[in-house]
Structures are given as C-alpha cells and as structure tokens.
Simulated scan of single mutants.
Amino acid sequence: MSRNLVERVLWKLSVERSSKNRFREDPRVFLAQFRLSEEEVECLLSFKVGALQCMGVNPMLTMGFWQELAPDRSMRLYKERLGAIDQQRAAFSAALKG
C-alpha cells in the first residue's frame, strides 16, 4: 500500500475538475493510470473511507473525496462508514477514533 499515492489520487479528485470528470465517466480507467493495489482500487471504487483511514490516509482527504464524488454525499452515511455510533452521528468529525 502506498499511502502517499492514494493521498495524491484523492487530492487530484478533490481539486482537479478534469480528474473528477474522468473519474465520474469511468472510475476504473481513471484509477488505472496510478500504480494502486487492487485493494486500494476497491476501497476507492466502493468509497470505503474507513478502510482508507485505517491504511493511514489523511481523514480530510477521505472526507473531501466523499463530499465531491460519493453517490450519496450524506455526512451521516460517511460517519457510519467510519464506524460512528448514535451519539457520534450528531457530532462532526473527519475521522472517528474508537
């Protein structure tokens, strides 16, 4: 796993309009230009933000990726993907530490 590479991909997807558009058109083709592992590709395609954070990816990058490109951009769902429980869903956090 190359945390730095995953973070670079997420940064591009958060700030570069052309990258966002290419990802929306065909995410696999967009991700193929990077030397990502199959696990990393699956995490990105499935928006597994909790798994990405467990790999050491910066929480602000996972949140930006979610807000820009997730099919359901709900922050409630984002926090659930991080493992939030009831009282944590009401609070804001880019990362949830258990």
Rank of each mutant, 00 (worst) to 15 (best):
E39M: 01
R24E: 11
L69Q: 13
E42S: 08
V41F: 08
V57C: 09
Q88S: 14
M55Y: 05
L10P: 06
N4A: 14
A94T: 13
Q67T: 04
S19R: 07
I85N: 14
G83L: 10
R24C: 01
L77T: 11
R89P: 00
G98D: 14
M60V: 08
R76A: 07
A94I: 02
Q88R: 13
E16R: 05
E16P: 00
D72P: 01
S18L: 01
L44I: 07
A94V: 04
M1H: 12
W11M: 05
K12L: 06
Y78T: 11
F30R: 03
A51Y: 03
M60I: 09
E68N: 14
L5E: 14
M63Q: 12
E68K: 09
L61D: 12
C54E: 13
W11G: 02
R35G: 00
E40Y: 03
S37V: 05
K20T: 03
R81V: 04
E16H: 08
A90N: 12
A84Y: 12
A90K: 09
S74V: 05
G50P: 08
L82N: 11
F30K: 02
K79A: 14
A95C: 11
L44Y: 11
A84K: 10
G56N: 07
C43V: 07
V6Y: 04
M63L: 15
M75W: 12
R28N: 00
K79V: 05
D86V: 13
G56I: 09
E38M: 05
E38G: 01
L77R: 11
Q53D: 12
R28G: 00
R76I: 13
A91D: 09
E42T: 03
L69P: 06
F23I: 00
M55I: 02
L36N: 03
G83H: 14
R35I: 00
F92T: 07
G50Q: 12
P27S: 12
A32K: 03
P27R: 07
L31G: 03
K48F: 06
L36M: 02
L5T: 15
D86W: 07
I85Y: 13
V15F: 04
C54L: 09
L96P: 05
Q87F: 13
L36A: 01
Y78A: 09
R81W: 12
R81A: 07
L36S: 03
Q53E: 15
S37L: 09
S2W: 04
Y78L: 10
M75C: 06
Q33G: 05
L61E: 14
L44S: 04
V57W: 09
M63F: 15
A51K: 11
V57P: 05
L61K: 11
K20Q: 15
L31T: 02
S37G: 05
F47Q: 10
L77I: 14
L5C: 03
F34M: 02
A95D: 13
K79E: 10
R81T: 06
L44P: 04
S37T: 15
N4Y: 05
C54Q: 06
S46C: 01
K97F: 11
R24Q: 07
F23Y: 15
M1A: 11
L13R: 06
K20C: 08
N4W: 04
S74W: 10
G98N: 09
F34W: 14
P59F: 02
F30D: 02
E80Q: 14
Q67E: 15
M55R: 05
A91P: 00
S2D: 15
M60Q: 10
